[in-house]
Write a protein that binds this DNA or RNA. Structure first.
Lengths: 187, 187
DNA sequence: TGTACATCAGTGAACGCGCGTTCACTGATGTAC
DNA sequence: TGTACATCAGTGAACGCGCGTTCACTGATGTAC
């Protein structure tokens, strides 16, 4: 039966958060509308009171995942030495926990290939998220303004590639690549 | 009707090659058995004369994609200055053509996330492919033996991350990241 | 504030579709003599 | 080499299943007075 507007907004947020987690764990196509509704404690029938299509949900979920990551990243830089913050973020990003729990991790590493196969609108949201990430990460890089941004882009590419490879490989190969990237000098 | 053993082997190879291309373009789950058979000029009904399950086909397709990439990579190193070969490979890897045509490109960048969500056997094949790739790429890196391998792992991570981000982003963001990685010093 | 009615968030059944897999069948290939 | 038969690669129809989406219905919420 009908719920209050406040309750509905909470449900909406729970659907998006659930979809953001499930999509990062299983993939966009492998996360069904019923899965996302179920994660919010609802049945699938009411889905279209919240979203026009599954694509709309996944766009919202992608944005939510980026917001989460960027908030964490920004918190790490807040009032701290930017060089140290960048080094800490790398260690955190390349951690065993991040490799093993994509559902709460970086959407670039978890959903990049899915988004590449998706709609232009999804790619727009993804690109915007990447740009915001680079903006914060650049603070921790050495050099002038343009140089910092270039280095941030390189750093993000290495981090994303390392996680993608680690998740898709046997434990030995994963360890090799993660260790190699942990030792990389930020330059 | 029945075809000769030689014809059957050719069909088998065409199914695997077609699946290797389609999986890299659309993803493993998004490539149907009928699609792979169709790409080989066959109807879907005969599939199970060639493979036990769809998973078996995708394992073969993944191995074929790695073989292709490693053969290309090795050819680039054959009899040439290893430093120059590594630089050329990077330029080739980060090219517009590679971003736009995943079907003939690196399986790490095209299928990494799919494999991460797949079976352990798929991850074993993937890890082995990564190790072989690192072995060749290491020849073009500076330093001692262990150092070269570490640098190769970092280089591959950056290349893979750059392509994943470029494919999933708007053209502006893609260009930013690709250019940043092209300029990176091999160290 | 209290009442009467309209609204609409959520439910559960139903739809058409594409999927992986199975199977009876066909007829060219492979083999035994 | 030639013949007779067994084999089996490929075909097309069929299966059960899960998917995204639709819809009639329910009853609590929101609103007009």
């Amino acid at each position: 039966m009908r719920v209050s507007r406040k309750e509905m907004e909470k449900n909406h947020a729970r659907i998006v958060q659930g979809a953001a987690r499930l999509a990062r764990e299983r993939g966009i196509e492998q996360t069904s509308v019923a899965d996302a509704m179920g994660a919010a404690g609802l049945k699938h029938g009411g889905f279209y009171r919240h979203f026009g299509t599954k694509d709309d949900l996944m766009d919202a979920a992608l944005n939510a995942a980026f917001e989460q990551m960027i908030a964490e990243l920004a918190a790490g830089f807040d009032g701290k030495d930017p060089r140290k913050a960048a080094a800490d973020y790398r260690a955190h990003y390349l951690s065993k926990a991040h490799v093993e729990h994509p559902g709460f991790g970086c959407p670039v590493a978890a959903l990049g290939i899915d988004v590449a196969r998706g709609s232009e609108s999804l790619k727009g949201s993804f690109g915007a998220g990447v740009q915001k990430t680079l903006g914060t990460l650049a603070e921790g890089m050495p050099g002038g303004k343009a140089e910092r941004r270039t280095r941030a882009a390189r750093e993000l590419a290495m981090l994303v590639g390392a996680i993608v490879i680690a998740r898709a490989s046997d434990p030995d190969t994963a360890r090799t690549v993660l260790n190699a990237c942990r030792q990389s000098v930020i330059s």
